[in-house]
């Protein structure tokens, strides 16, 4: 067993946990958190791909994960803004067409 197998399995497991909950959880806010968990799982796979036993990791996957984190926080911010706006719309409007 190596750190690679341990964290590789962790990454895939996190992705699966996030994916499943993003599909079934009954609240939009929760699904957003689940997508963030899944994305961390994908990040683990890339960090594993960069890792070398003797040190001296590959910088390219590191750059990709940083980009991925920034892209995801941007999307998360938009999704959360929609959650807030829906809350405001539902509290001000009596009903709307489904």
């Amino acid at each position: 067993m190596t750190p690679e197998t341990i964290y590789g399995a962790t990454g895939i497991a996190l992705f699966a946990i996030g994916l499943y909950h993003a599909l079934v959880l009954p609240s939009a806010l929760r699904r957003i958190v689940a997508l963030n968990v899944a994305s961390v799982g994908a990040g683990f796979v890339m960090v594993i791909a960069a890792w070398r036993p003797g040190g001296g990791a590959d910088p390219v996957p590191h750059a990709l994960v940083i980009t991925g984190i920034v892209v995801l926080v941007a999307a998360t911010a938009v999704a959360l803004a929609l959650v807030r706006a829906l809350h405001d719309a539902d509290t001000t409007e009596t009903d709307d067409t489904p």
Binding site: P3, V47, A57
Partner: peptide
């Protein structure tokens, strides 16, 4: 896993 830059980004942003 020798990814300090990514760790910083995850801690600060993620």
């Amino acid at each position: 896993l020798d990814a300090p830059d990514v760790a910083l980004a995850e801690a600060a942003i993620g």
